[in-house]
Design a protein around this nucleic acid. Structure first.
Lengths: 175, 175
DNA sequence: ATCTATTACTTGAACTCTCAAGCTCTACGG
DNA sequence: CCGTAGAGCTTGAGAGTTCAAGTAATAGAT
């Protein structure tokens, strides 16, 4: 009746999947609930206050931290863990807002830089406090220092496992 | 230059936001990276194999576990942590697929049940192994038992904090 | 009884994301 | 030099999501 329950018996059948134990299920559901609620919460806060979803805000942040407030599209996509296509659409929108501007790459005529404008920088400055506050309230204020450390380690491991081999063949970016 | 960095000095100005420390930032970025990559990974796996995104799969699971494979729309939305509007659209799609059917509630003419069809149950059965496998590979196989326990606790805390007060005024569900 | 507030759910439009092409340019092998 | 494979980025269409507004029925208050 369940979709991921304890195996009835450890039947060593080759094709038999290793179902999640009850405890694993609890963990997984907590994860799904928390991430769903949190992403929703942050999206709503930023949409209301800054007029953009969480991902877009993240893009502005990456640009703000980059050398000349500029990053090649592919770099930015990689940093933000999103596809190039998604980034193209996103930057188009941010450009319409006047927060980002595109610039041609001199050394490679195919290349494009996404550049954070002063206006974009200003938007970031204005709305960072609210965002940090939301993150703090939802996450850090509720966790002990040990839990925070744990969270960092765990998420680091998970992220690394899903990363496109880190400097190997960047398959997901070929999509 | 950064959007959530260490405070320059602990200026006790009333409006001064409590920026994240470097370590908190590392944790937060790991969290964002991991959740982005994982959700993307699961969506892709389920879309490819089962023809639906992760959220939709989750809805079928909730229904499969419910008493008569049926749940009131609002209940289902609450369980899945999504808005009613999103659920309405989702169920409409799942209904077109023949995996879910709507039924009127006899005791409340406004109410609707979402009911998992046999076909829907079958889809779940067929694709559960692949999904469990993906989750296991990305998460559980990479974490020690202690880390798994930690993850469960931490995510439980975060989820609880964002929950609509649990049996209190369910504000988010009025939206 | 009737009026109002609330609950339950849906709808449509605007926006975002994905997927599969597509275009242009670079790299490099002959 | 070509010619072709691949890189870098964009595009359009379809699917999913959000937000604000809408319909219909119930619950309470008068």
């Amino acid at each position: 009746m369940e979709y991921m329950n304890t195996a009835p018996a450890s039947s060593a059948a080759a094709g038999e999947p290793r179902w999640l134990t009850d405890e694993e299920q609890r963990v997984w559901r907590a994860y799904v609930d928390a991430t769903t609620l949190l992403e929703d919460h942050l999206d709503r806060q930023l949409q209301r206050d800054a007029g953009m979803p969480h991902v877009y805000y993240g893009l502005l942040v990456k640009l703000a931290e980059a050398p000349h407030r500029r990053l090649r599209m592919t770099e930015l996509a990689k940093d933000a863990k999103i596809t190039r296509s998604r980034l193209s659409h996103a930057v188009a929108r941010l450009e319409r807002n006047g927060w980002v501007r595109r610039e041609d790459c001199p050394s490679d005529k195919r290349g494009q830089f996404a550049v954070l404008t002063d206006e974009g920088m200003e938007v970031l400055r204005r709305h960072a406090p609210g965002h940090v506050n939301a993150v703090r309230q939802a996450v850090f204020d509720r966790l002990t220092p040990e839990q925070q450390k744990s969270l960092g380690e765990i998420m680091g491991i998970v992220a690394e496992g899903l990363q496109p081999c880190e400097a190997g063949a960047d398959l997901p970016w070929l999509r």
